[in-house]
């Protein structure tokens, strides 16, 4: 048994919160710069250039890339040979969020209950923690702050197995079309196919963590990703929805076995500020 103290987890989370909100992953930067070259709409090109300028300013001046520093979403792979010592694991993560969002001058965007009071919790907690137990004696923490604007444009549908790939394509394209300018295009489209309702949604979100340009290991699914990206970019929405060919930078699909009766599909939309960062303890 390897022991990891909660203070170590809190310190790691604090650092992740500050760093992820200030610096885009390299693959996203590359994709944005390539999009500037490829976009055919003059206004679209200008907007993409400003988006590139924005992440550079954020890095230089130590500012958040986007003011919506999101719901603090964590994917934690906890090694089964790890013993957490010194306190409550969930509280350790929440304390890291509290400290990171204060230290980084990040926006606190969470209200205490969704319907009745909607009072800001003041420290961006609680975090959303997806915990998975894995072999080994390490903890891998991935932090992906999720903005409200793009999350609001996401959707889920329980398709019939007979709907097949065509049904999935139709649903994904319709979801992106309806989202239009709202989720701050260019977007990344995370698609979860299979499992139960909640698994489809979860793997759609996990799909957003996959580097741009990397495809699903199954060639048929990889082809579906490419086809969907091409179709989505024919919608004409373009950068910020002002028209153009760069509506999405990538379509990433994750799959999971399904029930004989079901074909669940979830579409999780991510804005161009596709922030995530990970650490291993």
């Amino acid at each position: 048994m390897r022991e990891i103290h909660v203070d170590e987890i809190t310190a790691a989370v604090e650092k992740l919160c500050v760093e992820a909100n200030g610096k885009l992953p390299e693959d996203v930067k590359v994709a944005l710069n390539e999009a500037v070259e490829k976009e055919i709409s003059p206004l679209g090109r200008e907007i993409l250039s400003d988006i590139v300028k924005n992440y550079r300013i954020a890095e230089e001046k130590d500012l958040a890339i986007c003011q919506d520093t999101g719901f603090a979403v964590f994917f934690v792979e906890l090694g089964q040979d790890v013993r957490i010592t010194g306190g409550d694991f969930n509280e350790a993560i929440n304390e890291g969020v509290r400290r990171g969002y204060k230290k980084g001058y990040l926006r606190k965007s969470i209200v205490d209950d969704p319907l009745i009071h909607r009072k800001n919790t003041g420290d961006n907690t609680p975090a959303i923690i997806h915990l998975e137990m894995v072999p080994g004696d390490k903890i891998r923490i991935t932090f992906a702050p999720k903005g409200g604007g793009s999350e609001n444009m996401s959707a889920l549908r329980m398709l019939k197995p007979s709907d097949g790939a065509e049904g999935i394509k139709k649903f994904v394209i319709e979801t992106v079309r309806q989202a239009g300018p709202n989720p701050c295009p260019p977007i990344i489209v995370g698609v979860g196919i299979g499992g139960t309702m909640e698994v489809a949604a979860l793997i759609a979100k996990k799909a957003l963590l996959r580097p741009i340009g990397q495809h699903h290991p199954m060639p048929e699914i990889a082809k579906l990703e490419e086809e969907l990206l091409e179709q989505v970019n024919k919608l004409g929405i373009g950068p910020q929805g002002f028209g153009g060919r760069t509506t999405a930078l990538a379509v990433n699909i994750e799959t999971f076995p399904a029930h004989i009766a079901s074909l669940p599909v979830a579409v999780n939309i991510q804005c161009h500020a596709a922030r995530h960062r990970e650490i291993e303890l």
């Binding site: 400003d50 924005n54 001046k61 003011q67």
Partner: peptide
């Protein structure tokens, strides 16, 4: 008016 969504650092200037 529309401002560029996700360009918060640029706009803050």
């Amino acid at each position: 008016f529309g401002a560029i969504g996700g360009a918060g650092a640029l706009l803050a200037d």
